[in-house]
């Protein structure tokens, strides 16, 4: 019940914001005055109506995981985000080994197999991508300068990164 209502409220606010943004879409002579706005406004309108339906006619509550699982999933998101920004400056092997190891540990919490899975996946996929698929330029490993490393991490910190 409550989940559907909250989600409906979030989509309703998003839809209204979307509608507001759609009215502000810049137009020029080539596009005509209202054509670039028409379809986004239709979408926003339909979404707003459906959000109201969700708020007033919610489905039964889904089975949400325990707070421990939420923590784990939040951690997974953080790990993946750090992995995403470090993939370029640090190359493939080291970040992959660490990220895959952590994910593996989260799915099945046993330290040794998780470590082995991380290292094995990293090296195995490196060989697969570099030699079998010819993606060597993407999975090459690099040794970054501290400045580059900071630059990459800064992307994830609000108001500091670009």
């Amino acid at each position: 019940m409550a989940s559907d209502r909250i989600f409906g409220l979030v989509t309703l606010i998003t839809a209204v914001a979307y509608l507001a943004a759609a009215t502000q879409i810049q137009t020029n002579f080539f596009s005509g005055e209202y054509l670039p706005k028409l379809f986004p406004m239709l979408i926003g309108g339909v979404a707003a109506i459906c959000s109201l339906v969700m708020i007033f006619k919610p489905d039964p509550e889904p089975e949400w995981p325990a707070s421990q699982s939420w923590l784990n999933m939040g951690l997974a998101v953080v790990v993946l985000a750090i992995y995403a920004v470090l993939l370029k400056p640090l190359g493939f092997i080291l970040p992959t080994a660490i990220a895959a190891g952590i994910l593996s540990y989260q799915i099945s919490p046993r330290a040794k197999p998780a470590m082995m899975a991380g290292i094995g996946l990293s090296l195995g996929l490196y060989v697969l991508f570099k030699f079998a698929l010819g993606l060597g330029n993407i999975v090459a490993y690099r040794i970054p300068t501290p400045a580059k490393l900071w630059e990459a991490i800064a992307i994830l910190i609000p108001f500091v990164g670009p």
């Binding site: 989509t11 810049q26 670039p36 986004p40």
Partner: peptide
């Protein structure tokens, strides 16, 4: 209502970017 919302999310995302006819960015 839920599947319509899902479709709207997708369509709304598709609108993001430079508009093909005016050449101006949207949303």
């Amino acid at each position: 209502a839920k599947s319509a919302i899902a479709a709207c999310i997708g369509l709304g995302i598709a609108m993001i970017g430079v508009d093909s006819s005016s050449g101006l960015p949207r949303l």
